[in-house]
Design a binder for these strands. Structure first.
Lengths: 204, 204, 204, 204
DNA sequence: GATGAATGAGCTTTCATTCAT
DNA sequence: GATGAATGAAAGCTCATTCAT
């Protein structure tokens, strides 16, 4: 039996508010987002937000907690799956990352940080230390594995891992910004990513 | 004979104001930027801004005009210079692009677009059609040249040119956002960019 | 049982604000009226006004609605009352009109229209079509009645009814403007109005 | 020989400015009139106005001086002209007054006074004491003359002279305000004025 | 005498936030 | 717990006025 509507809503409130807030941040950014619009999106009164979050800044902070948490709840296990040749595993992992990042709700976070991150140094640090580091660690791990298998050029580890990750970020930014002007064909883009990076970092 | 103090300022004013505005946009974003702060940065009264720009939106629009104009005033000629092997010309061009983009004042424009571009579709289009297209055209031209010389894999042109450009954008975004948390060693980063991309797209 | 204090105020607010606004318009005109002063008169914060009226123009529009409505809620029935000789009925009606118009709060509306009506063509039209037309219709009806009774010169209807109404408007304008310099003795003025008009339009 | 253009303009400046100011007052009222618009109308720089008038209030004060002066330069002599029957002289004088008042530039003054006169008590007084009193004096004189000739009812002087003047004021106000909604046929209106008043105040 | 540049006070309006109900 | 009413601070912008040239 489902619970009564009322109590179900009560428990869901905080997350509903965050969802509404993120939707608004995505639409107009943090500064331009108004509590009124957020409340309207959540279908509640303006003042009700303050029952759950002390102020607008607490909202964005909680939004980061929630989305980063969600992002990592499902991540991490993808790496170990395959154990085939580097190119194959790399392709798998990139597909995973593109899906999780470019198409994810968490992309708003990046947008907010790029735009207004200086006002929220803790959020910058948190995002860097979790989301970005996680992606970089995954990729580094993958490279090390490929290196151990003798598939990669030995000097590869000497370069900045962000180079390997950069097409993902471009796709993410592009998705947020220029998608409507000039859409990216993601599947084909991933092929290119694998091809350009692999055929450069593989020994031969 | 130099002109009188007053008229000298008058000529310089518009640019001074744009500079101040861009500095403020860089610091807090467009929405959060206040005319008061911009005026303070420019060392003038709030209302003086309105002598030169009709409103806040005219300010950002003019800022785009100025910075995009400046960016292209000095660009373009670098390509034809070298005619050595692809790797060398590519390295030269990347060095040029990184300098012109990552370290440029025009980077704020990208930041504003990522954050609040939906409010300014014309600016989005303008930036896409000029800055981004210019960079992509330069890179495409370079690849075609390399292809003509037989230095590149023939299938290279089939992939999205943005892949070649992506490390630049990551560096740009990073510079804006995470530079203080984890700085990028740009010279070394460029080496990696050349190495990763070239050793993948060159025939062998 | 009376309602709680808060909700009582809420119901009264809109009208309180209109009252304050009209008082301010009466004092300094529409353009020169400041929302701050209106709020002060109403004993509320500036921003509270915006809970009830979208902007300053909405305020004057609502003020017209309210005052014209009030003016007509009590009007109209006075005509049918008497059925004595024309002079008597005319006197009764004028007394009614003078009271309702010259001493009314709605006089501010006329003042605003004279002064700044070009900025509000709809208000001009509304006032003309309701207030003025109503007065003119009442007077025209009265004349027709007198004509039917054979008390009036037959050519009377050929002239502009506004001539009959004009002493009322002069009194109204005077009341707004020169009352303190040179007050009008209204009762005596009405006598004169009746005398001058009647002894001119009656057959004999 | 006409003087040089420059010096002619110089002498004409003050009056040109007043003309521009009155035109602007007529259009939007005193408060809403901007010095910028007035200067634009006069074809000079904003600051040039201050060479001739200390501030905005001095402008309206000077405007009153000029217009009232002009109005009276040409007035007053019309009364003595005719010495025919009252009705004829009255008609002549009314025609004069309607032309001088309703179609005059000085009508703006009345408009400003109705709208914002409370801010300028001196102007109210001046206008009342000159323009209005002059008109009332002229009419009173005419009535006295008619009375002396035995053409008028003896009790006429007991009533407020403003009653005789009121159709003029209605026409003036109407002209300013509702002319476009419902124009007045002035010639016919004057006929009515004469007819209604005369046939009321004449003995028979 | 005339002006363009500049300003500060004040305007309307928005919005995050508080609080009585 | 939830809300509608209210507010104060601050935003963008206007405008009468001053002043160096």
């Amino acid at each position: 039996m489902p619970q009564a509507k009322r109590s179900r809503r009560k428990e869901a409130r905080p997350e509903e508010i965050i969802d509404a807030a993120l939707a608004e941040f995505a639409a107009v950014g943090y500064s331009a987002a108004s509590m009124a619009q957020i409340a309207a999106r959540a279908g509640i009164a303006r003042s009700t937000i303050y029952l759950y979050y002390a102020d607008k800044e607490a909202l964005i902070s909680a939004a980061f907690d929630l989305r980063l948490g969600q992002a990592f709840a499902a991540a991490g296990q993808g790496v170990a799956l395959s154990s085939g040749p580097f190119r194959e595993v790399f392709h798998e992992m990139l597909t995973l990352l593109y899906t999780r990042i470019v198409k994810s709700d968490a992309l708003v976070l990046l947008k907010v940080l790029v735009a207004e991150g200086r006002q929220f140094p803790q959020l910058l640090t948190r995002y860097h230390d979790t989301a970005l580091n996680a992606a970089m660690t995954m990729l580094t791990g993958l490279l090390k594995q490929g290196l151990a298998r003798g598939e990669l050029r030995p000097d590869v580890m000497g370069y900045d891992i962000k180079l390997v990750m950069s097409p993902i970020m471009l796709a993410a930014i592009w998705h947020l910004t220029f998608q409507e002007l000039e859409p990216i064909d993601l599947a084909h883009y991933i092929e290119g990513h694998v091809s350009f990076i692999c055929d450069g970092i593989l020994t031969r």
